[in-house]
Write a protein that binds this DNA or RNA. Structure first.
Lengths: 159, 159
DNA sequence: TAAATACTCATACTTTAGTATAAAATCACA
DNA sequence: TGTGATTTTATACTAAAGTATGAGTATTTA
């Protein structure tokens, strides 16, 4: 692909150079006719000046022109180390009709606390925690606390 | 950013084209007046040719010069789906002296299976699973299976 | 105000999990 | 061939988890 482009560019260059040259000759001829100048050395002189200043112009342009910046956006995969991008799926939480208290219990379950410990932390009885558990299991359609935690994490209900 | 640059480039081209055209017309008109009415002033004539061809050269150069490509690498954060970049911490596994069987049990624990179910899957007795569990809890320094699973996942012992 | 909902608690029971201890069976390896 | 590590199994027990049922309380909402 690069090669074909180069060839095209070279062809383009040749064409434009040819046209330029033709234009130059026509221009000179036109000048000749226009001003009736028959002095050959003068034509050559003018031609040389034209060529020289054309070259000068080219040099000047290349020297002064700002580089045409072609921004190439390369998507570089940056692997993010920490799963800090936890976004709680509040939609699903309301969809599953999980209450605040149930979510609290769920989070403590995920931390590996026993029912007793959870009851102590929430200042409620063991019975209450068990009740919450049962509701959770039913709503999450699981049978055990581990499954509840696993599913809750998978569904982004808890971190 | 890209759009403004494009506009600038287009403007640049237009400006150069406009100037070139205007300059050419003025030049021709001026030449006509200058040389037909006042007849030959060769220094000026040559100077004008020099200017014209300098401009022509500049135009040619700008037209033909390949864009100098400046590659800008933009690091774009691409969040990779997380379960793909799990790298098991085999070092820690050997460090904790976890046996193959214990790891198997650990993985099944993580999936929320009960001891009975694990025993069935591994074709061993419930006693065996319990024994593995105990060894796991001791090696992982935890008290319950949930804690074991939580810690194992955190330490990248299991996916 | 009545109904719905969430939260709470209790009791009784069954199941599962975890602890402690002991001991075969298997296997790699020196 | 024996030695150590792993794996396996068993028994007996305690602790925790889970089930089922009923009911009181508080808050919100129609």
């Amino acid at each position: 692909m690069m090669i074909s482009k180069n060839i095209f560019l070279k062809n383009k260059t040749n064409i434009i150079y040819g046209i330029s040259l033709a234009f130059l000759l026509i221009f000179l001829k036109w000048l000749e006719l226009r001003f009736i100048i028959f002095n050959h050395s003068y034509e050559i002189y003018i031609g040389l000046i034209a060529i020289f200043f054309t070259a000068f112009g080219i040099w000047l342009a290349l020297k002064l022109s700002k580089p045409k910046v072609e921004t190439v956006i390369v998507e570089k995969e940056v692997y993010i180390g920490k799963p800090e991008n936890f976004i709680q799926n509040t939609f699903l939480i309301s969809e599953l009709e999980l209450s605040k208290r149930e979510l609290e219990v769920l989070e403590l379950l995920a931390k590996g606390y026993s029912n007793q410990e959870i009851a102590a932390q929430l200042f409620v009885s063991l019975s209450t925690v068990k009740a919450h558990n049962q509701n959770l299991f039913e709503k999450l359609e699981v049978k055990r606390r581990i499954q509840a935690v696993e599913k809750a994490k998978r569904l982004k209900l808890i971190a």
